[in-house]
């Protein structure tokens, strides 16, 4: 089993798996996202949470190192760790998904933290959230959903 080499596998991985509200994910893509939810930040709150299920359909390990969104200044993969009744939230530097593995980003566990929502001039696009997942600097997955769905 090899660690994904972004340049060599760029072509196959750039087959995006897009999953909007009416999810039409290409289940044959190397990395597939399903059940994507971005919570609507409560009034006065600067942060939203994102949850998604990621499946690696490729024969290589996929290591996600960063996430971005045009609608937020910053997106990070975080993990809520509860030990001895103490809740700690820590950044996840690398999300490793083995071939054939499904990883869930879900409430109370690993999740996306979306910070500082950007002002949009496009009223129609204001609730559409796009998330771009990167392995090093290579875009491997781009998914969209509506806010709060």
């Amino acid at each position: 089993m090899k660690i994904l080499e972004p340049i060599r596998h760029a072509r196959s991985l750039l087959l995006f798996a897009a999953c909007a509200t009416a999810c039409t994910a290409d289940t044959s893509a190397p990395l597939v996202a399903t059940d994507l939810v971005v919570t609507q930040a409560l009034p006065g709150v600067m942060m939203s949470a994102g949850y998604v299920t990621l499946t690696n359909n490729s024969a290589e390990i996929i290591s996600l190192t960063s996430v971005s969104s045009p609608q937020f200044a910053s997106v990070e993969i975080h993990e809520t760790i509860i030990a001895n009744d103490i809740a700690r939230m820590r950044p996840v530097e690398k999300l490793v998904i083995a071939p054939g593995q499904t990883v869930k980003l879900e409430p109370g566990a690993k999740h996306l933290m979306l910070m500082q929502a950007q002002e949009s001039t496009d009223k129609k696009a204001v609730d559409l959230i796009t998330l771009n997942f990167y392995a090093d600097n290579l875009l491997v997955l781009s998914v969209s959903t509506t806010l709060g769905s």
Binding site: T39, M46, A87, P107, G108
Partner: peptide, 10 residues
């Protein structure tokens, strides 16, 4: 706290 995106609202 209000800016806790996960465990607090849950």
């Amino acid at each position: 706290f209000t800016n806790c995106p996960d465990i607090c609202p849950l």
